[in-house]
Design a protein around this nucleic acid. Structure first.
Lengths: 344, 344
DNA sequence: TTAAGTAATGTAATCGGTTACATGTGCCCT
DNA sequence: AGGGCACATGTAACCGATTACATTACTTAA
């Protein structure tokens, strides 16, 4: 039987530390928040006591007193499986990395329509210092209302006139894609587009990229972001008398439909037709052949969103205009693009 | 100029409500927590005041006083892109739905190894009433330590001898898969396995399913959960003199490799070989042909994990043995399985 | 008639910190 | 010697709720 060991099971408070170190609670508190004016010996005593007692400041009490929660909210609308499965995890990872790096915590709120969003969001807002809002979520009226309130927000992947945001430069991505196809020697290029902001930006970029090479798209078909529609569009395009040699598609997800259609029509990709899409979602690696695509830097986007949020916190930055950042996408060349076969 | 409107911008506390309603704070508090013994008239006054003032109890103060945070943690290890992208979003959705339904809040912690997990987890643990731990995360020593502590946990997709968990019945899934192939008329069936618990359970189920039909696998190749290894295994199997007519693969991800290999070998699926895999991740819909697969009910798993956690909260349930639940997977028949071609 | 019990409400301690303000000490300068 | 000041630390109010215990006013039973 050694001497009784210090009991660590009961939570220990700042008062315990103060008593143990022979100082006041204020001094301990100052120590924990990193206040500079503490003498060496006092500092040492407190440090020793904290370690000996295994003290950890209670974050709730701390937030209550300081009105600073060190916690960020992430608002997502559960939406469709295709969307969230493809992008959410990666964005999340970026946000989480940014948060963890600064000792912040992340609060996830997924809106799926089942529960009154207002109630959820009110609670959400009370628990965090501000929120990151994923593009599709902003379409919900309650989220839009929250974003318009004094609650600090940064939008992810959604451009907005009066709120700070970080998004992908889809227009640039479109240009990069078009140029790649042109540089491979394609001249008969068609676009299969998505609607919404991102889709039309991509298409506009495609067009611009072609135009700067003196080309113009053979056809531009809008298919929202729907795989089946994209497939039908591909069918129409590829069964025309003088079909395009390359297809620019607005998303990997749609491109999967295009690939499937090509396959059923007995066409081989990229020999008979090149396909270049957008996103570099995980599915781009698993199709056959694997998709050449324009990569969206999603995890960076999450990371940057967090950092932007964090920077927007200090008083002076509140007066400046909202920050907006556009990230550059990047070509990932896999196996669906190749020079056109001479078929004259 | 109408009369001055009540100012709602400053946060209003329970004291304001008490004063406005002409009662004590205790009574207001009782009202908000749903205490039964409040007279009709008092109740009405309080309700009116709360509405008029737009009062919302401060969750932080509430948690501090009640030691009940109404918040659950979800611990995930960022891990590989393939894993998290494929499963995370769906599980998350289930958890979030369960939480939102009961007015709980979810705190997400992603461990990516960059930061000392211990620090993150300590803060995490202080902010929640307990945690859900995703399978792969438990492999981290710090998470394991947390799970072993008094912190209440439920494991997701990981069987454990002393902790409550919810997981998929992979063995059953394997059996279902095997039976499906058998019922299609296949007799020469090979397995491409994954290691870890889930992989070997699936394979064991496959074997058992075959055995109960008087068959045994032509071959069983372990490839961890690696796509390239799976592809190589498929090559080996399919190029043998008397190849199997069907392949049971331990995951969709690996199956993509198998499909790719079949395609390069000039084999058509399912005419030349059937492929049946496991997960029904989103990629299963986008391969060509789309994968027949055994679906894991991931979002249900998340939902159930939350519910289990919530039920485990009351004092009496703490004495019982930890709950463990196995969810039944389900066959999703797409286009990679068909009766074998008669090739005698 | 009165003791005891019950229902509704109030008082004040408490949760575990932060921080404005007060205090005490030592040093420099006039 | 004494005023002024900076520095280190202590005291106590406060953040916004919950809740044990006290109080009051009615019932009801003996």
């Amino acid at each position: 039987m050694k001497r009784a060991r210090r009991e660590r099971s009961k939570r220990c408070s700042i008062y315990d530390v103060a008593r143990h170190a022979g100082v006041s609670v204020a001094t301990v508190s100052r120590f924990t928040v990193g206040f500079p004016g503490i003498s060496r010996p006092t500092r040492a005593k407190i440090k020793a006591s904290i370690e000996e007692l295994g003290f950890r400041p209670n974050p709730l009490a701390r937030s209550l007193a300081s009105r600073y929660k060190k916690s960020i909210g992430l608002i997502v609308s559960a939406g469709t499986r295709a969307y969230s499965d493809l992008f959410l995890a990666e964005i999340l990872q970026g946000v989480a990395a940014g948060a963890a790096h600064l000792g912040w915590t992340v609060h996830l709120t997924m809106l799926n329509g089942a529960i009154e969003p207002r109630f959820i969001l009110e609670r959400h807002a009370d628990l965090v210092d501000g929120s990151l809002i994923l593009d599709v979520a902003l379409e919900l009226p309650d989220v839009a209302a929250l974003a318009a309130s004094p609650h600090r927000c940064v939008l992810i992947n959604h451009r907005h006139k009066s709120l700070p945001f970080v998004a992908i430069d889809n227009f640039l991505g479109g240009k990069i894609a078009a140029r790649h196809l042109v540089s491979l020697g394609h001249t008969r290029i068609a676009c299969i587009g998505g609607n919404r902001e991102s889709g039309s930006d991509r298409i506009a970029g495609y067009k611009e990229g072609l135009k700067s090479s003196g080309l113009r798209p053979v056809a531009v078909l809008d298919c929202e972001f729907d795989q089946k529609l994209a497939r039908r569009a591909a069918h129409k395009l590829l069964s025309s008398p003088h079909p395009p040699t390359a297809l620019l598609v607005a998303s990997d997800w749609m491109a999967c439909g295009v690939l499937a259609e090509a396959s059923t029509m007995g066409l081989e990709v990229p020999r008979d037709v090149s396909v270049l899409s957008f996103d570099d979602a995980i599915i781009a690696e698993t199709t056959w052949p694997p998709l050449s695509t324009i990569r969206q830097p999603l995890s960076e986007m999450g990371r940057i969103a967090f950092d932007m949020f964090h920077e927007s916190l200090d008083a002076e930055s509140r007066k400046r205009a909202p920050v907006r950042k556009l990230l550059q996408p990047e070509l990932v060349e896999r196996k669906t693009t190749a020079p056109p076969t001479k078929d004259l």
